[in-house]
Design a protein around this nucleic acid. Structure first.
Lengths: 203, 203
DNA sequence: AAATTTGCTAACCATTAGGTTAAACTAAAT
DNA sequence: ATTTAGTTTAACCTAATGGTTAGCAAATTT
């Protein structure tokens, strides 16, 4: 898993991502990250001072990979149905490639609630006001059933993210192997959007 | 937060639940659990040998609180629409009272994938075969739109669980305070079922 | 070429955390 | 009253872990 990297900073960051995302901040060991990066443990401190700072760098980097995806659904200049289709398809494709990412973010956010406030304060933090306006419009126009934009947003996010966070639990419940579950996720690239649109479209 | 308990075992278990569910296995400290329980640290080992065993007791207890909820949707002798309504309402009511529980389970399951296998092997582990059959029937009868039972199941679980696991993230995105978010969750007791039923019902 | 800064390593340090132990205390049984 | 079994505590032990340091090597600067 250890590929050559341009700079030691990036090399360390990637190794730390790997370990932090899989184990979480508390369970991750600096030595393990050093091994993954193929370097001496002291180097981690040389480049990133402390575990906390290294963790924050990883977290920021991880979060900044997800934020653009969310802005897609929020600020794109497309119809609401198209947004839902695009987001579901794109997001699921993305997460299939980074399976530990959503769980990592949720987990660490829960462990450190103040972190949310810091994130919200930053620019580029997704804001749903545009999406909200769009939903309200379509409801008023009789194109979609009455629904609060907040609830619809929560539903979209839930249907797209949870199947990855709860993958292990769900494979247990529906009693399929990893391969079959992956296949289900592939299907969801279109399935989820269909489901949502069916739920809200006024025929 | 420290109330009098019947037996020291239960007292310890409750304290451990509190800490483990909030911080996770790795970040939880035995001393912290002892403090929460109002006892000496050695007592934890006296009654539960090791951190690992104490953790497993907590996990089992937590999981066994959720399993019955799931059997509701899976094995009840009611119509599929009723199941969805009952489950959503009951589950959300339950989790509002135990907000850390789902996150804890998911998190520790992800950290220790082999745990799933152990759980699945146990009796009382939910099995969706009955639900599956019911869905297929209704699809064949033209009562609901064609959908794989597995996908519907994943959707139901996602819509009910994720809003609690991702609460902090979602409050950030939709920019509401804790109180307003709780209100949204209250609404979801009926909102979620309506959404799902709209999505699948053939009119 | 000498000096100096930067990158890197091995050994070390201090603290923390899980776990143990031996002694003390309590209360029931003899 | 004495024994005995179960319970509780303080003090201790050991391993692991995040972090530091002193020195060396390789560039970079002057």
């Amino acid at each position: 898993m250890t590929e050559e990297q341009k700079t030691p900073e990036i090399n360390i960051l990637n190794a730390a991502k790997e370990i932090f995302e899989r184990k979480g901040m508390a369970a991750a060991r600096m030595q393990e990250i050093a091994d993954e990066a193929g370097i001496n443990k002291a180097m981690l401190h040389y480049y990133y001072r402390s575990k906390q700072l290294l963790f924050e760098a990883v977290f920021k980097s991880a979060f900044s990979m997800l934020a653009p995806q969310l802005n897609e659904i929020i600020n794109a200049d497309t119809s609401i149905f198209e947004k839902i289709r695009n987001f579901s398809s794109n997001y699921i494709s993305f997460v299939i490639k980074h399976p530990y990412l959503p769980n990592f973010i949720i987990q660490e956010l829960n462990r450190n609630p103040d972190f949310v406030k810091k994130l919200v304060a930053e620019k580029n933090f997704p804001n749903i006001s545009k999406f909200k306006q769009q939903v309200n419009e379509k409801v008023a126009d009789g194109i979609i059933k009455p629904i609060k934009a907040e609830q619809l947003f929560i539903n979209i996010i839930s249907l797209n993210i949870f199947p990855f966070i709860g993958a292990l639990l769900l494979t247990g419940f529906i009693n399929v192997n990893e391969e079959a579950y992956k296949q289900l996720m592939e299907e969801r690239k279109t399935e989820v959007a269909d489901f949502i649109i069916n739920a809200i479209k006024l025929k």
